[in-house]
Design a protein around this nucleic acid. Sequence first.
DNA 1: CCTACCGATCGGTAGG
DNA 2: CCTACCGATCGGTAGG
Lengths: 199, 199
Amino acid sequence: MAASRRPLAPDEPNRRAEIVRAASRLFAEKGYSATTIRDIAKAVDMQSGSPFYHFKTKHDMLLAVVLEGMATITRATRAAAARGGTPREVFDAMLLAHLEQLLAEDGRHFAATLLHEGHHLEPAALKELIAHKDTYEAMWQKALRDLKRAGNIGDDSRVTRLFLMGALNWTVQWYRPNGGRTVKQIARQISDLLLRANA
Amino acid sequence: MAASRRPLAPDEPNRRAEIVRAASRLFAEKGYSATTIRDIAKAVDMQSGSPFYHFKTKHDMLLAVVLEGMATITRATRAAAARGGTPREVFDAMLLAHLEQLLAEDGRHFAATLLHEGHHLEPAALKELIAHKDTYEAMWQKALRDLKRAGNIGDDSRVTRLFLMGALNWTVQWYRPNGGRTVKQIARQISDLLLRANA
DNA sequence: CCTACCGATCGGTAGG
DNA sequence: CCTACCGATCGGTAGG
C-alpha cells in the first residue's frame, strides 16, 4: 500500500515529504478530485510528470497524506492520555491534543484531507484507514468510560462518543486562527459543556 | 443565479427535478468534481449533452441541489419551532426536524451535498449559500438563548451552537438506516446530553 | 527528475 | 432533447 522510496541521504532535501505536504494543502482546499498532479508539481517546483518518480499514482499520494494525518493525531492524543491524572484531566488533555492537531497551522491540511477526502481512497486503502480510525476512537471510548466511572458524565455510550467526535471535528469548518479564540479556550468550552453537571 | 427553465405543463414529467435528484445522489456519493455530466445523464436516461438543456453549467446543478437542501431543512426546522411549547419542547422538535432531513432516505443526499460540496460553488453562489446558512443558524441561536433563560443550559454562546451543529451534522458520517437506532432516539440522546443537568 | 508525449475523458456547444 | 463534435485537460509513461 505504501509507495516505495529510495533511501534518503542525510542532508538531501526530502522532496517526497514536500510533495505530501503540498498535496495535503491542495487536497484540503480544492478536494482530491479537483486537484491535479500538475497543481501539486507546480507547488513544489517540479515538472508535471515528476511527482510520479516519488509516487506510483495519485491515490498513493492521498493515502500518504491521510495516513500521516491519522498517525499524527493518534500520537499526540495518546501522548496526552499517557501523562495521566484524573479522568477529567486526561480527557481535557486529549481534547486539547486532538484540537491542536486539527487546527494548528502545520497539521490542519492533513486533518482536513483525512476528514473530507478519505472516501476517495480505493477499497483496500480505505479499509486500512478505517482500522486506524477505530483504534483511535477506542481511546476516546475508554476516556468516556473512565469519566462515567468517576461520575463526570451520565452516558458513555457509542452515540455520545460520536456526538463528541462531531463537535470536535466540525471545528475544522469554522475555526479561524485569528478569530479571537484560542484552541485552548475551545477545548475548555467543550469540556465544560459535556461535564458541566459535575464541574 | 438560478438556472432558467420553461413553464411546466401540468402532467409533464419534471425532468429538471429528476436531474437535480440524481445529481444530489451522485454529488453526495462521489463528490462534485468526480461526478461527470455523463454520470448524471445516464442516471436519468438522457444523452450526455442533454442535461445542458435544463442547466447552463455543472455549477448551476450544484447550486440547485444545495439551495434545495438548505430550503428543505430550513422549512422543516422552522415549522417545528413554530409549533411552540416550552423552550425544551421547541428545541427537541427542532433537533428531530433537522436530523430527519439529514438522515431520511429522500433528503440525505441533498444534505450531504450541502455539507460537503458547497465549497465548490463559485464565489457569488457560495456567498448566497452562506447567507442562507446564517439565517438558519440564527434560529438555533435563538433556541439556545431561550433554553438558557429557562435555565436548561448554562452557556448559549456561539461556540455552543457550533458544537451542536457539529454533533448534529456529523451524524451524516456514521448514521446507517438499519443500524438499530431510530432518528428519534438519536435526537433524544443529544438533547439529554446537552440538557442533562436540568432534565 | 525532465522532456515529450499518449489515450482517455471532460464540460460544453451547434444544429437540428 | 439527441447527434456529433470540439478544445482543453487529465493521469500516467518511456526514455533519457
